[in-house]
Simulated assay, not measured.
Amino acid sequence: MRKAFVIASTLLLVAFALQFVFAAVGAFTKPAGDGAYALHSVTGTAIIPVLTLLTTLFAALAKAPGRLIGLAILPLGLVVLQALIAMLANASTDASGTSTALGLTIGGLHALNGIIAVHVVVAVQQAARKLTAPAPADAAPVAVREGEPA
């Protein structure tokens, strides 16, 4: 299960990296129609949530520490926050539908939250890899008596 945890967390990291590429594709598509951000939207609303759930499941099955399991599910909350930020930014336009300073500021938080999410996924992926690393040859085994905390 630990290898599955590494694979899922790596795929999640790749999906987040592609998210930035897809955002750039949307930003540079001319003319920018309704479909300019389609890949970005699908990745953010479907692929990343599914990969986050799989990563969390494999973390639990790999008997990862509770904090790591919690960290593994955190990107799902950040994706929900992303959607809320995007909705707020889009709703913060003037009567003619033109962007406002407030809307652009809120939109900037969308990018910042994405960067935070990537850092979380990098931490999860690194911790997953650490779990699969073999113990050093010179490490002394730790004896644990029954009934004592490990």
Rank of each mutant, 00 (worst) to 15 (best):
L104H: 08
L39Q: 08
Y37W: 09
I85T: 02
T45H: 04
L78S: 11
A91Q: 14
A64D: 01
A24H: 05
G44R: 02
V80R: 01
V144G: 06
I106S: 06
H40E: 04
P141H: 02
L84H: 06
M1S: 11
V79I: 15
A32L: 08
N113P: 03
L84S: 09
F22S: 12
V42M: 09
V124L: 06
G35A: 13
A17K: 01
S41L: 04
A137R: 14
A83D: 00
G108N: 10
A150H: 08
G77P: 13
L12D: 12
E146A: 15
G77A: 11
L78N: 04
V120F: 00
K130F: 06
N113L: 00
V118N: 04
L104D: 15
Q82N: 05
A72C: 11
F28S: 10
G70T: 06
V144N: 09
P75I: 03
T132M: 09
L54Y: 12
R129M: 12
N90P: 00
E146L: 12
A24S: 12
A143G: 12
A72D: 11
E148H: 15
L12H: 13
F16H: 14
L61A: 11
A83T: 09
H40G: 07
P65V: 03
A38S: 11
T98V: 14
V142N: 02
R2C: 12
I47N: 04
T132E: 13
A60T: 07
A127L: 03
A101I: 09
I116D: 03
Y37E: 03
S96Y: 04
F20T: 04
A62W: 01
A27F: 02
A95M: 14
A64V: 01
A72E: 07
F5L: 08
E146D: 12
F16E: 14
V142R: 06
L131I: 07
P141A: 10
T43I: 11
L11M: 09
L78E: 01
P136Q: 12
L51G: 10
I48M: 05
H119D: 10
T55N: 02
A137V: 15
A36C: 07
V6P: 07
L71A: 14
G70R: 03
L109Y: 02
F28I: 03
I73R: 05
A60F: 08
A17W: 00
L53M: 07
T43D: 15
T45Y: 05
R145F: 08
I73S: 15
L109V: 08
A127H: 05
A59K: 01
A111G: 13
L39V: 08
G103A: 13
V25Y: 07
V120P: 05
G103S: 11
K63Y: 00
S99W: 14
A128H: 07
A135W: 04
A91C: 05
A8S: 15
G103Q: 10
I85N: 01
M87F: 11
P65F: 02
A27T: 05
L81A: 15
T55Y: 11
G44H: 02
L84D: 06
A140F: 02
R2K: 14
A137T: 14
T93C: 10
T52A: 13
V120D: 10
V121E: 01
V124A: 00
S96Q: 15
L131H: 06
D138P: 01
A60K: 07
T98C: 06
F5I: 05
R145W: 05
A23H: 07
A15Y: 07
